[in-house]
Design a protein around this nucleic acid. Structure first.
Ligand SMILES: [Mn+2]
Ligand SMILES: [Mn+2]
Ligand SMILES: [Mn+2]
Ligand SMILES: [Mn+2]
Lengths: 225, 225
DNA sequence: AGAGAAATTTAGGCATCCCTAAATATCTGA
DNA sequence: TCAGATATTTAGGGATGCCTAAATTTCTCT
């Protein structure tokens, strides 16, 4: 497989991250917004990725794009780099949680296979990154975890925080301050259009309100098992 | 100071490494050979570097180029990244000695100041990289060590290996096999145009011949002190 | 069906960094 | 001094990846 540039890597990863289910098409505009480039630039790049041999994406004009199997492989590879790097930066180099993402976002494109393997070994073949995201295996993808966005979770039902978003440092600092980190159990008391109120919990005296901006950073799962 | 591209970094580092003494001019052809590009490309880049504000090099047409103080600062910065990374790869990630250079050569351009600082802390503010090269301080340059090329060392006088070249993996493996690594004491018995013969040494039964290719990888200093 | 939203196309441009080939200029040593 | 070595200039090009602006196509919803 031909080597991919940083820009290509970023497009593939963005398509992966925007396509919730594997078959869902991602629109050009969504990609443009996520990558901070113009729609015309996206169209150009998608055509290039689809024209490559083997193609990295399956591109349907006006309908959207999804990863080909080669594209999926490369995208997961980059995600593995990213999450291993984040854990390394946090656990070994003692980076604050809200600073790991930016550095990993840069370095993920440049580390070698050997670096990836040695870091994984140093960390003891970890399964979860410091935000609670699953670290994919070296070859092949990984099953989607059973987590759902907190915004979709029913009120009254206890839930465990599985992961938090890694892209917004300010939100991350706030979540840490509130102790809303992976592993913590919460209960939604009320859901409004713009916020969610969480019930009082052990170690916290009053119910409190979480803005959607923070709610959207959190993914949860049932407390059972 | 404006951010420098990878290509600019590589030019600055090459100028630094090719100018033995601080004031020595480096020729365009020497740079072209070291960087694996054409002389015409070098001329173009040198003009760009000299035109920058502040200038990164002092360029005298037909005579050569040397680093300005801004250029020197950036070049030493990259060298610090490189040598810290090499030591990190060797000591923490357990890379073989002959594989650290290539990875460091790539990553040196992309790590942040924070990464540099945290790696230095993890390694205990090291002074010497795994090839025996001095790791410059974070701000400002460093004094040149007292080492000289083995090719310039007088026969009969014992010498300690101070450093070995990091750019040729095959040569490095051979030097390790021969136990010619930093810290080891040697004596030159005979010098030929194409080789040097070392005297028998503790742990070695016969004198042996070292090709210039290997001799040129080694820098030594007096055994005293 | 028609309007508005979404996406694409086209045409031109910018920046970086590299290449070749040929002509020219400068330097240096015998 | 002058020939050969060294370096520069000029003029052309390629690749990547981004931009704008305007025109157009396609889709989707009412
Ligand atoms: Mn990899
Ligand atoms: Mn993460
Ligand atoms: Mn630095
Ligand atoms: Mn080294």
């Amino acid at each position: 497989m031909a080597a991919t540039s940083q820009a290509v890597d970023d497009y593939l990863k963005a398509i992966l991250e925007l396509s919730g289910s594997a078959t869902e098409l991602v629109s050009s505009n969504a990609l443009a917004a996520r990558l901070g480039v113009r729609a015309a630039s996206v169209t150009g790049m998608l055509q290039k990725l689809a024209a490559q041999r083997p193609p990295l994406v399956v591109y349907q004009k006006h309908r959207g794009v999804r990863l080909s199997s080669a594209g999926k492989q490369r995208a997961w590879e980059i995600v593995r780099h990213h999450r291993l790097l984040e854990l390394f930066l946090h656990n070994i180099l003692k980076y604050p949680l809200d600073e790991v993402h930016e550095e990993a976002e840069r370095l993920e494109h440049f580390i070698s296979e050997r670096f990836e393997d040695r870091v994984a070994a140093l960390l003891g073949d970890p399964k979860i990154d410091p935000h609670g995201h699953v670290i994919p295996h070296k070859h092949g993808t990984h099953a989607f975890p059973d987590e759902v966005p907190l915004a979709d979770w029913p009120a009254g039902e206890p839930a465990v925080i599985r992961s938090v978003g890694d892209r917004d440092p300010a939100a991350l600092r706030e979540l840490q301050r509130l102790d809303l980190v992976p592993g913590v159990t919460i209960v939604v008391k009320v859901r409004n259009p713009n916020a969610v109120t969480l019930s009082a919990l052990p170690g916290r005296n009053t119910p409190f309100r979480l803005s959607n901006e923070l709610v959207n950073q959190i993914a949860v799962a049932a407390t059972s098992r």
